[in-house]
């Protein structure tokens, strides 16, 4: 293998690597906030919100990520405020992932015994207070493993940014491979960069899941 490809284009690789991490982290925060909101919609007593929550999750989960990214790339500009590839891609990633996170959080909330809600409500907390102070803190513990897995997915999925010129790892790799005509070597190094991020995370997630299993 030709290591000069890595050393000659190290700057490009690193810039892409940095943007891939940044986009994944931003999308993790975005999708968590959005997902938590949708999860609450889905279990709230208000019928309209519940329907919206269910519709959102069902729709987003059944369309491709790339399509969501394209919608955020072309949509806003049709309305007069163009977003660049990195931002449109990161928003698309957040929206797409939020549907999956919403389901994970909902499952986590459902796992908290009903009696606790009743106890909290009868001791004078309102619905929102019960959620924020009693239910969510417990649900979060159960939600961490699926959230971790979603983060791994986010890192991998952020590669679609390349299709809207989002300056991620794959984007720079395309540039390097058309310059060097060495597709194989170029992308083996790209794979290494992804694995450096995803393999340790996968390992950590498995350890965490084991611990949870042992506890119960």
């Amino acid at each position: 293998m030709d290591f000069s490809i890595l050393t000659d284009h190290f700057g490009s690789y690193m810039e892409g690597f940095y943007n891939t991490i940044l986009s994944s982290l931003l999308a993790l925060c975005g999708s968590f906030l959005l997902g938590a909101l949708i999860a609450i919609f889905r279990i709230t007593p208000v019928k309209g919100l519940r329907w919206f929550g269910t519709g959102y999750v069902e729709f987003i989960r059944n369309i491709p990520l790339l399509l969501v990214v394209y919608i955020f790339f072309y949509g806003p500009s049709a309305l007069g405020f163009p977003l660049d590839g990195f931002i449109a891609g990161t928003i698309g990633l957040s929206v797409y992932t939020s549907a999956f996170i919403a389901e994970a959080i909902r499952a986590g909330i459902m796992a908290v015994p009903k009696g606790q809600t009743e106890a909290a409500r009868s001791s004078g907390l309102n619905y929102a207070q019960t959620m924020v102070h009693i239910i969510l803190p417990q649900a979060i513990k159960l939600v961490i493993p699926p959230l971790g897995n979603q983060f791994i997915n986010l890192i991998k999925n952020s590669s679609v940014l390349t299709l809207v010129a989002g300056l991620d790892l794959m984007y720079f790799a395309d540039g390097i491979s058309t310059e060097t005509y060495r597709t194989f070597d170029t992308y083996i190094f790209v794979a290494m960069f992804y694995l450096v991020l995803t393999l340790p995370l996968s390992y950590a997630m498995r350890v965490w899941e084991r611990r949870l299993q042992r506890k119960y």
Partner: peptide, 8 residues
């Protein structure tokens, strides 16, 4: 070209 039209 789509991106140019989209104001990118």
């Amino acid at each position: 070209f789509s991106a140019l039209k989209a104001g990118q």
